[in-house]
Design a binder for these strands. Structure first.
Lengths: 343, 343
DNA sequence: CCAACCAATGACACCGCTACCAAAAATTTT
DNA sequence: AAAATTTTTGGTAGCGGTGTCATTGGTTGG
């Protein structure tokens, strides 16, 4: 019904504007604006007329104009180091489900675990005047940290905890988690516990430090049974690294791998080579991905409430935007799921 | 160095503006604008001065103002039915890696496989004046289709193909894929082939129709060995549905499951119950997720180039935005990976 | 019956930037 | 050296909304 609009110049979007709706409804532009933003401040009669005109013309508000006029973009920027990793998918899911019902939109970017790319992305995202930012981890570059602090909008650092957040942090202590799962293995009677890690981002590093501390506490050489790689994690890599480590140290009786992908790869490889898990080798991972409890034997792992963490992170942002009370730091906790791979 | 700005009113963002940069550099605002957008149209001397002023003041352009003035938002909206599904993660990864280097940003939303939510999301996203839209599948509501067509920006429908896209489509024929994998199973000598599907979104439906056509061509009852559910897919569901189907029809010698999650769940269940795969039961999936080749036996499946599909979809959008030649429909193809689960 | 108040509506300026056009400066051509 | 052309810079208006304040009309109470 509203199809034949005049040819849009390079200037105008060619869309229906507030003014046109106003004219159609026989009111002023500002009244239309109010009818849309604060319906209760407009009389029933006018509101009905306006709603009708909006429908008839197919009016779509222009958020750019809104942002400019009211310094509110309704955009939240999210920066993750990976999009294909299930951990971040779940996190994103949680963030989305908190933000969208509250009327916010998500601007998403992938830093590919590169601090340089992260710096650039922050820069670009700020151009959109986001009402808040969710960024992964606590290891931003000094430049970016400064930039973010000067910008004066709510920021959540997600996945990890710190006493000294840019603004707020929501996550867990990866050191504690790495420590706890290693202690758990010692507790079950395993003596020679190996650690395998790939990609070794900051969080994996801290899990490894937790492992090392536990090893030290049990009078073990903290570095002897460690094998790490900067290459990406994958099932294949888990299989390969396990093979490498146990062929070098066949006394190892348990293995903590820095995530479930690696750990599952190790289990699959054991299946192929006829290594009994957990009888000959116990295996533990980190994250509790969906396949972890489905595989044989089911994988012992550290569960973190990813979806919940996403929701919390978003909620912190919203609370802060609305000037409600908020906490600087939210520990969402982890739990050890003891399954067949370490019985 | 640029910290102590005057208190931002509710009106202004309190940020450094172009005008302030201009004053600092001793030039006019428009010249600063040019120096940023078309550096070659400004003399070296001024450009240097301006760059310095930008740095000193920590100037960040305001994209809302840009959008308003030039009817270009540099935003691409992406609507997926799920964020936690690895298929869409990979797609998103591809989209991101094409768009971000070209200076675009991604506004992401999740319709949760709900057409109502999709309608609402389209509505909200349009408020941002996106320069393009990527939306999943070809089954939008009539209302949304109309909306999108009137809006007159490039649109890519991704994942599937159609002769009659809203604007462009990039994907594969799921009917053909379902047909091809079933034919493949017949070709290997299997006679009683079952189909298991969950969630049953439009694409799963079309794969099932491909299966049915193949069954008919081989003089089989197309509906007898079908088991579907509207519930979500998961490893557990694959295990359960397989159990249900083969207990009802123990003559089944091969199974095509509508995705790899279900198929892997079935394989894990066979491992647990001591059912030999493929000797007693052949299993095939769809998608070729990362775990599919790692599990035992490795899963026969239909591979689709998800990352590539995302890149293509984004590229189509970019080509169209830049008025380059483009194709209405891009078939990215699929391939059958014959692995151990159907030997 | 009029002052005091409140709810509903409108006028206007302005958010920060760029399209468009005009003017000035630098360069080339005649 | 003057004219013509090109390059560089600037002035102005306007993109489409909303904050702020003013105005209008109706209601209440003394």
């Amino acid at each position: 019904m509203e199809n034949s609009r005049s040819t849009p110049s390079r200037r105008s979007s060619g869309r229906v504007t507030l003014a046109e709706v106003a004219e159609r409804a026989g009111v002023s532009a500002i009244t239309v604006s109010r009818a849309l933003k604060h319906p209760d401040r407009v009389s029933n009669k006018l509101r009905a007329k306006i709603t009708l005109a909006v429908q008839e013309l197919g009016y779509i508000p222009n958020q750019a104009a809104r942002s400019l006029a009211s310094a509110e973009s309704k955009i939240i920027s999210v920066i993750f180091p990976s999009l294909s990793n299930a951990v971040f998918s779940d996190l994103l899911d949680g963030i989305h489900d908190s933000l969208v019902p509250a009327g916010y939109r998500i601007l998403l970017a992938n830093s590919h675990y590169s601090i340089t790319q992260e710096d650039e992305l922050v820069e670009t995202m700020l151009e959109q005047n986001p009402d808040g930012i969710i960024i992964t981890g606590i290891d931003q570059s000094p430049k970016t940290k400064k930039r973010l602090q000067n910008i004066n909008i709510p920021i959540v650092q997600v996945m990890e905890l710190t006493d000294n957040p840019l603004d707020m942090s929501v996550g867990i202590s990866h050191f504690d988690a790495g420590h706890a799962i290693t202690e758990h293995l010692f507790g079950k009677g395993y003596k020679k516990i190996g650690f395998i890690g790939a990609r070794m981002d900051e969080r994996a590093q801290r899990r490894m430090q937790g492992y090392r501390q536990s090893m030290i506490a049990h009078d073990q050489d903290p570095d002897r049974y460690i094998l790490t790689s900067l290459a990406n994690t994958s099932f294949q890599r888990g299989a390969d690294m396990m093979t490498e480590l146990i062929s070098k140290h066949n006394e190892i009786d348990a293995l903590f791998l820095s995530n479930d992908d690696l750990a599952a790869g190790a289990i699959f490889e054991c299946q192929r080579r006829g290594i009994q898990v957990p009888q000959q080798l116990a295996i533990a991972g980190f994250n509790d991905l969906e396949f972890s409890k489905a595989i044989n034997p089911a994988l012992t792992t550290v569960a973190i409430p990813r979806f919940e963490m996403g929701k919390q992170a978003a909620q912190c942002l919203l609370d802060r935007i609305e000037d409600k009370p908020f906490s600087k730091s939210v520990d969402v906790g982890f739990s050890i799921l003891d399954r067949e791979s370490t019985r």
